[in-house]
Amino acid sequence: MRKFLPLLLILTACTVPPDPPPVPPSPEIQVLPQPAPTEARRPVDATHLTAAAVFGDLESVDLCQFLKPRDIADFGAAVPDDPAAFDVCAMTFIRDVDRVLVRVRVGPFQRDGRPALRSQALAGGVRKDVVGEDDEQCLAELVFPDGPVLQVAAGADRNSFGGSRGVTASKCPLVDTAIDAMARRFPLGLPSARTFGPGSWHRAHACDLLRPDLVARIPGLAGKQPEQSAAGHACVVRGDGVEARFRFAAGYPLLPTGNLAVTIAGRESVTDDLPRPSRDRTSWCQVSTAHIPHEIPDLPGTSEYAAVEVQVAADRRDTACAESRALAEGVWPGLPG
């Protein structure tokens, strides 16, 4: 055995160990895309529900975040409707029992409430006042501790499929159901601001343009004081049997079909061809001018627009449209670019 030892040592010394197996490359660290952070909710004190805390900026609030069609599904299958305002959410449905068209409206915000027929205290210091109820509609107001008053209304259309059948049923249970659903969302601090394009009018204040010298030209309005809505988008001047109104709005302005297309103060405008009758037997006429597109979910082709209206007593019916056009001649030059 000894004579083989040197050879064994030589073989051992010269043996080259095999290469280690290749180390697999380290997997790349993958950064998964993160979902966009949700908009922070506003802190809300459920014991003191101010309009500022519940809704945020009244000039840009989307009230349709607080009332959904499913909330009133027991009354009918509601679909979105033209809000005709920045601070309004509207929806309509055809009532199954009588085929009457019913419209539900949340908004606008007002500075002052009306005398209440009956009142109810809600959570957080909010008060519900029913201020109007008749065969065709129910109007309630939610009065918030910091002052703003939010209207909630439901009304039936006598000219819909069912004619006047069924319109005598009270709409207040529908309004109550809508308010109950909204009140459950008030403490949540919901992100509820709309998105506006460059040059939007949602920050403009209507009473800045409805000047006293303009409304004084309408008989019965000289010396009357303007009233501006809480969000600033609407302004009204009231006299005895006559009103002048101006508003910045989102929705569908008047269309030339069935109306008159005119140019007023250099702006393409549309005016009612004939005065429209009101429920209180007065007549009113509107002039509107479109601004920029404004997207409202499920309502294609909506835009921002401005509108003036003059409402007069029945014996002055024939003057309503001429006075509306004259008012637009004075208001349009002041519209923001």
Rank of each mutant, 00 (worst) to 15 (best):
P173S: 14
L174C: 12
L174F: 05
L174T: 00
A178Y: 03
I179P: 00
I179C: 03
D180T: 13
A181L: 12
A181H: 12
M182D: 03
A183W: 00
A183C: 03
R184W: 06
F186S: 07
F186I: 01
F186N: 04
P187R: 09
P187A: 14
L188A: 12
L188H: 08
G189E: 03
G189A: 04
P191E: 04
P191L: 02
S192N: 13
A193P: 00
R194K: 12
R194D: 05
T195G: 13
T195P: 04
T195D: 15
G197T: 15
G199P: 08
G199L: 08
G199C: 07
S200D: 02
S200W: 02
S200L: 00
S200N: 06
W201K: 05
W201D: 12
H202K: 10
A204N: 10
A204D: 13
A204W: 01
A204K: 05
H205N: 14
A206Q: 02
C207Q: 09
D208W: 00
D208I: 05
L209D: 04
L210W: 11
R211Y: 09
R211K: 15
P212S: 15
P212E: 14
D213I: 13
L214M: 12
A216Q: 03
R217C: 12
I218H: 06
I218S: 10
P219R: 15
P219H: 14
G220S: 05
L221W: 06
L221G: 01
A222I: 05
G223I: 04
G223D: 06
G223Q: 09
K224V: 05
Q225A: 15
Q225D: 12
P226L: 12
P226F: 13
Q228I: 09
Q228S: 11
Q228H: 09
S229V: 02
A230Y: 05
A231V: 13
A231T: 10
A231S: 14
A231L: 13
H233Y: 08
H233D: 12
H233C: 13
H233P: 08
C235R: 08
C235G: 04
V236D: 06
V237F: 04
V237Q: 02
V237L: 02
R238F: 03
R238N: 11
R238I: 11
D240P: 00
D240V: 08
D240M: 12
E243C: 07
E243I: 11
R245Q: 06
F246N: 13
F246G: 02
F246I: 05
F248M: 07
F248P: 05
A249L: 11
A249H: 09
A250P: 02
G251V: 06
G251W: 07
Y252M: 11
Y252E: 15
Y252A: 14
L254N: 09
L254D: 11
L254G: 00
P256Y: 07
T257D: 15
T257E: 14
G258M: 07
L260R: 11
A261K: 03
A261G: 05
V262S: 02
V262P: 08
V262K: 10
T263P: 02
T263Y: 06
I264M: 02
I264P: 11
A265F: 10
A265I: 14
A265K: 07
